[in-house]
Amino acid sequence: MTRALALLARLTAQGLLSLAETDAALAAASTAGDPGGAQARRRWALADAVAECDRARRHAAWALRERLAPLLAARAPRAALERAAADPSGLLLPHETKGLLERQVARALRQWG
């Protein structure tokens, strides 16, 4: 269940599932009724896991920006920037890293006038 929760949390934090969908999935997985409060506890655990995953994703994005900063300052070629923009943790989706790289490049271009 822990692995399933972690996966659900990651998918939710990545925006691939909504909280309503994960809630529904949890409700479907539970037995009739919830006498021991297990389902409620799972919901809390999921909410915590989503918050933690969201924090880790923010840190991954920040680390990515930090990796790109010196390359942008050195006006590195596009291929080097794209290589550095890969997220080894897998928390950021490819379209997110691509978007972040392009925003940083556009920002650098604006700064240079």
């Binding site: 923010r58 994005a61 920040w62 920006r65």
Partner: peptide, 8 residues
Amino acid sequence: ALGPDGAI
């Protein structure tokens, strides 16, 4: 704080 895209 860290924003959603990693910016402070």
